[in-house]
Amino acid sequence: MLTLLRKITPKPSLVSRVVTLQYSNDAPNFDMENPFEKEKKSCILCKNNIIPDYKNVKLISQFQSPYTGRIYGKHITGLCSTQQKLVEAEIVKAQTAGLMATYLKEPCYLGDPKLFNVDKPFRPHRF
């Protein structure tokens, strides 16, 4: 059977041919946007459309350390630089106005939900 088939198949011509490829008209359109592009990330305050205010102590004290009262950096809070600057300014304003503690987080705010994990910063600590 095999020998019979071999005899039948014609030998390909040794002369090289220029093959011009042509796509049919119903080929898919590849000018579309990258379907695998990841979703654009935004920080938690921008996502919820919040602008920090010094009177809203419950909100801004979430960006304060309960141990030292200092403001967490943006590598921990995960805020964009604009929002981080606003939060830092509002915390200082609240502290000078006597609305917010300086060396600790007030005990009434200690049970608030955590917005970020201090031990797992978005970017590594510099120390």
Partner: peptide, 9 residues
């Protein structure tokens, strides 16, 4: 203002 977090990370 626009959130620039995407470019920052």
């Amino acid at each position: 203002f626009e959130c620039t977090l995407n470019d920052e990370i």
